[in-house]
Amino acid sequence: MAETSIRSRKGPVTYLLRIFVITYLAVLVIWPLWEVGQQTFFPPDRGAGGGFGAFVERLSDPSVSYAFNLTATVAFWSVVINTVFGVGISLLIVRYRFPGRRILSVLVDLPMSVSPVVVGLALVLAYSTGQGWFGSALASVGFYIIGTTPGLIMATAFVSLPLVIREVVPVLEEIGTDAELAASSLGATGWQTFRRITLPSIKWAVVYGVVLSMARSLGEFGAVKIVSPGAEFRGETATLLIQNRYTNYQEPTAYAAAFVLVLASVLALVVVSLIRKEDHV
């Protein structure tokens, strides 16, 4: 859009606002991020070594590798579950008519607004062997959720549940049903229509949702904190490791792990902005 005259006029207020915004973001976000890098590679005193070598050494500690492995496993499964569920429920909400459809479309957004602590508490109250509603029943068939990896996956899947849905629903609404109707009138089965018509048009929305879910799953803390035993080699995910190490005066390890997660989130942001460009060209 061509700039109109009134919008391109610049006065002292323009520059004041610009300086204010740059300063605000620099102090609130950029400077602290820079300091994380400093603390990771040049830890102040404490006799801790600095540089890249020390950074790698801290990360190769077995308990740290365990934590990152666990985080990757949990994130992988929760993303798989959320993608299948998310695409399915989006199709149902947008394309089909059934009682309670509107309520469901509002409810699926709920997990994002619920405090992670409440999510953890909810899972404990429902599924813990001691006090949960269904805990004893599940335990009697040898299935334990709280304190095990399935519990971590459920907690993570809970908090990142709406991310795929939020991306896919608007696209489905926008593309409409014409092409799908044409396909089925030409004799395509439901699955063929989905694979050949619907899926290609929601492809980028799905990828986008997957990246967002992945980023969210790698970094989940509150819900995981409550359902996990959270001890070294026992359900300690990367985020729990950061808290435990920091509070146990092993800041360099905490910063090293945090730095990896910062890199992962920035990478996710970059991928997301690339996808958006791809999507709109």
């Binding site: 991020l33 970094g219 803390f221 997660l261 910062v262 989130s265 920035v266």
Partner: peptide
Amino acid sequence: ALPTIVAGLVL
């Protein structure tokens, strides 16, 4: 994008 615990550590 930052995990919340990392956000705390960043600050």
